[in-house]
Design a protein around this nucleic acid. Structure first.
Lengths: 189, 189
DNA sequence: GTCTATACCTGGATAGAC
DNA sequence: GTCTATCCAGGTATAGAC
């Protein structure tokens, strides 16, 4: 593990504050105080508040895109692919819960890269939908409105960042098992 | 339907803007412009930006609390109660999607009533959990970690406001049916 | 009920010393 | 790499005329 650069440290601390109060409500003075320095000093390491947000969000969005690319190229059933998607979300939520919060709550405050983000997000959703549609066609998945399935599954997975930090590390595997059961087989006995 | 007061109109328009940009990013000038008046004029009808947020959030939180109270006092199975909860969320999301957005994204910016809101929210979650635990005890519901079930179900339902405005009014009943199937019986055939 | 004018404060960001 | 000092834009809110 390489030593964290000052820029990375700022990005990490910013993500934590963004999660607590939201991008707009966090001031550069707040961020500086949390780092133990003055606001002006931040600008030796970063260009602007906006680029901090950009770095946080785009990094994660690309992580999801890469993860999805790996999954779609797998030779396996639709249900197995959905399982891999659940695992992908759990992994990213475990690694970077604060960044995910910013992605989920503050993406609309992106400036230059807003369109790029929206495209990555749309592509990702389309991929999930295609997997589900394939599963329906192959009679692996119940014939329910695929849009509702995508919505239900992705909103749960996208909210994991709210929840995972409260769990013990050891129980992440349990969470994965429970969540897979709930999302893929339902709770009705 | 009574005619909307100016205060109600401000609250409604504010909720719409809060949904788009978040509470902190919306200025009183933005709100005034959307109303076609000047910022100073708003203060003849409302006390502060903060009380607008408060009115939006607390009204909805109390709607949920009242709805839950009605459900818990019903004499029916746990699954039927969960179905009623789904219906409650769909109803409120249909009636007031913008207000729900503020509740979900901006509750942390409440000042005086933050603790009150958090209590209502916690009580609500506890009620859902008890219903599920009862269902497990009576073998109506699979024996999966009830916390994960509550999380999965409520995060989906809490996000409905993002989704319902995109649907046709006529398809709300379809949505309810699909969502009930997905949340209560899963998608695995 | 809305306006203009304005008070007062806090935000992001820069300049230049150390 | 961090500091102090500062700029200036834009925020909430009030006073008082119409």
């Amino acid at each position: 593990m390489k030593k964290e650069t000052r820029k990375q440290e700022i990005t990490r601390v910013a993500a934590k504050l963004f999660k607590e109060k939201g991008y707009t409500a966090v001031t550069m003075r707040d961020l500086a105080a949390e780092m133990g320095i003055k606001a002006a000093s931040l600008y030796n390491h970063i260009d602007s508040k906006q680029t901090i947000l950009q770095n946080i969000i785009i990094t994660i969005a690309e992580d999801f895109t890469n993860g999805m690319q790996a999954i779609t190229s797998l030779e396996c059933s639709s249900l197995q692919k959905l399982e891999k998607i659940i695992a992908l979300h759990i992994k990213i939520a475990t690694t970077n819960a604060n960044g995910l919060a910013a992605l989920n709550s503050d993406w609309m405050h992106l400036k230059h890269k807003l369109d790029y983000y929206l495209k990555l997000r749309q592509d990702y959703e389309n991929n999930v939908k295609h997997i589900i549609q394939n599963g329906i066609a192959k009679h692996e998945i119940k014939n329910i409105d695929p849009d509702v399935m995508v919505f239900s599954m992705l909103t749960t997975l996208r909210s994991l960042y709210l929840w995972i930090p409260k769990k013990e590390i050891a129980s992440i595997e349990d969470l994965k098992a429970s969540l897979t059961k709930i999302l893929l087989t339902g709770i009705n006995k």
